[in-house]
Amino acid sequence: MPNRVFVINKHGQALMPCKPRKARVLLRTGKAKVIKKEPFTIQLLYGSTGYKQAVSLGVDSGQRHIGLAVTSQAKVLFQTEVELRQDVKSLLDTRRTYRRSRRNRKTRYRKARFLNRIASKKANWLPPSVASKVNHNINWVKRLLAVLPKPELH
């Protein structure tokens, strides 16, 4: 079963998701416009009744993937699996090697910089690879909550 299309009314408030066929008809007849590609969201260009049900957003956070599902009254309206970045550590290692090679060159004009270790003293500090995954989770949840009517997070 394909995912439903998220719908926003002309005032910017979230409505219940519709079937892809309904969204295609609305777009073809000029009664709606695309406002977001990921997750696919359309905005109505006419007034509507604004019918809404309570929907719940389920999140399964893993090391390599995030599983997201939107359900309403035992119906799955939307489900997706987002792949997380796995290259943050290697990019930081590359940056570190470039930085160390710069420091080993004979550059007399460069001031000594070895007392700049403030980042490691922060209380809520996370490693960049972990922070990237946490931020990715938060951003996807915010994206979905913005287009869901009466959302509940599970």
Results as ranks from 00 to 15, higher is better:
31 K>R: 15
70 V>L: 13
68 L>K: 03
149 P>E: 07
54 A>M: 05
5 V>L: 06
131 A>D: 15
98 Y>G: 04
135 N>L: 14
59 V>F: 08
25 V>C: 14
66 I>S: 07
42 I>G: 01
68 L>Y: 02
154 H>I: 08
115 L>F: 05
130 V>D: 14
7 V>R: 01
110 R>W: 07
79 Q>F: 09
52 K>W: 02
150 K>E: 12
81 E>R: 13
26 L>H: 03
144 L>E: 02
31 K>Q: 15
3 N>P: 11
4 R>V: 02
94 T>F: 07
90 S>A: 06
139 N>P: 02
149 P>Y: 00
146 A>Q: 13
19 K>D: 15
131 A>N: 14
94 T>Y: 04
41 T>S: 05
62 G>N: 12
141 V>N: 06
44 L>R: 05
24 R>V: 13
63 Q>F: 14
103 R>D: 07
121 K>F: 03
99 R>K: 05
153 L>W: 08
40 F>Q: 08
90 S>K: 05
49 T>Y: 04
93 D>T: 00
52 K>G: 00
76 V>E: 09
128 P>N: 12
57 L>C: 03
131 A>W: 11
154 H>A: 11
128 P>C: 11
132 S>E: 15
44 L>P: 00
106 K>T: 09
44 L>I: 01
65 H>C: 07
27 L>Q: 15
95 R>C: 03
101 S>G: 00
35 I>K: 14
65 H>K: 14
50 G>F: 03
24 R>E: 15
72 S>Y: 05
9 N>P: 03
119 A>Q: 12
92 L>R: 06
65 H>L: 12
13 Q>S: 14
110 R>G: 01
45 L>C: 02
114 F>Q: 12
147 V>L: 01
11 H>S: 14
107 T>I: 09
26 L>D: 03
103 R>F: 05
4 R>W: 08
